[in-house]
Design a protein around this nucleic acid. Structure first.
Lengths: 197, 197
DNA sequence: AAGTTAATCGGAATCGATTCCGCTTGCAAG
DNA sequence: CTTGCAAGCGGAATCGATTCCGATTAACTT
């Protein structure tokens, strides 16, 4: 899933082209929105052939993920090894709240690109970033709520953040990001508590 | 979202073509799988022009939804007005369990078509069947667990059943449908219980 | 510096979905 | 039984993504 590094060593012209393509794509998204991100246009704006573009990024959604990638690794670094409350050092419940809040913010922030990337290749997010999130979150949940099925609970919490659903709730249903954060936090809080009855 | 009925009255030739197209599409899916469902092929097999196909079903995912539609309305009728435990008559917690189990089964049963339909138009499922499910489930949850945020909890439970995620878990992760049913059931059971502490 | 090779290039060709539009036809009013 | 025309039809044209492949070129060897 790592879209930036490479097996051996990228040839200098290839690296230069990668940079030109990403710059051109970012500019197009900034000026014309995600819909304007046509492969032929990106290639033309970057001054390369479409073949080059496909060699580097695989397909349209690969390009979208590459555009997302920088913030992605930033986020992953933050919750894996950054300072508390997101990173290690805080209690699991605190980290879970922080993680969910940050995940909502991050998704909302890049909603259009995620929408496009997930639409073109819904499977790509799985096996990729999703699995990393899931591994992290289910570990924390197992730690904080030994009685719950951490694996499924993590899926439930993360699936609620899928770009298409989030877009629907935020844009068509008037739900706020804060309400979703609160709802997920409550859901986690309630789940796995020792039952009364 | 109703893909079968129509505003005024469908002309007889149009109705005949609709039937021919659906029959041809179903046969193609049966023999060549969902990947083989190319618009031009369906049109040719049905003996109509592609324009006709688009007039009737809007686009590829519309055709997929139409193929799903029959079982869809069957399912909706069952949980809205059918016999218990799915329909009215049983206690809310029982109906919720039954609904989640049935929803898992139904999704698994038509996983390929749903995968295609959602991939082509992830938004279509929202505003359509998803909203119906959500309305139903959140009503039951509100009834059974007055302390929980039924709206968000319903999203969490339903989002876990999204075709791409379910396909990933079932096919790539070795998770069974039964485990997911159990996990969702537990999640509902735990959520909204009066807290101990 | 010249040779060798595998990685890259570029852009034409291909492929499938979707749109367009002039022609046809069901059907209801006169 | 004509006539009017909105709904419907077919399939060519368009559009954008993706694939192909012969020409180039970076990078290592001798």
């Amino acid at each position: 899933m790592n879209l930036v590094t490479n097996p051996r060593q990228e040839r200098v012209d290839a690296a230069r082209n990668r940079a030109k393509i990403l710059a051109a794509a970012a500019e197009i998204v900034a000026s014309h929105g995600v819909e304007g991100l046509a492969m032929a246009d990106v290639a033309a704006a970057a001054g390369v052939g479409v073949g080059t573009l496909y060699r580097r990024f695989g397909d349209r959604s690969g390009l979208a993920y590459a555009l997302i990638d920088e913030r992605e690794r930033e986020f992953q670094a933050a919750f894996i090894a950054g300072p508390p409350p997101l990173g290690p050092g805080a209690d699991a419940p605190v980290r879970i709240r922080a993680f969910l809040n940050a995940a909502v913010d991050r998704t909302v922030e890049q909603l259009d690109l995620l929408l496009m990337a997930e639409t073109a290749a819904p499977l790509a997010r799985f096996g990729g970033a999703y699995d990393a999130y899931h591994a992290h979150l289910s570990m924390l949940i197992a730690q904080a709520r030994p009685d719950a099925d951490a694996y499924v609970l993590a899926d439930a919490l993360l699936a609620t953040l899928a770009a298409p659903l989030l877009a629907h709730r935020l844009r068509d249903c008037g739900v706020t990001a804060d309400r979703i954060k609160a709802g997920l936090g409550d859901l986690f809080n309630l789940a796995g508590q020792r039952r009364v009855q």
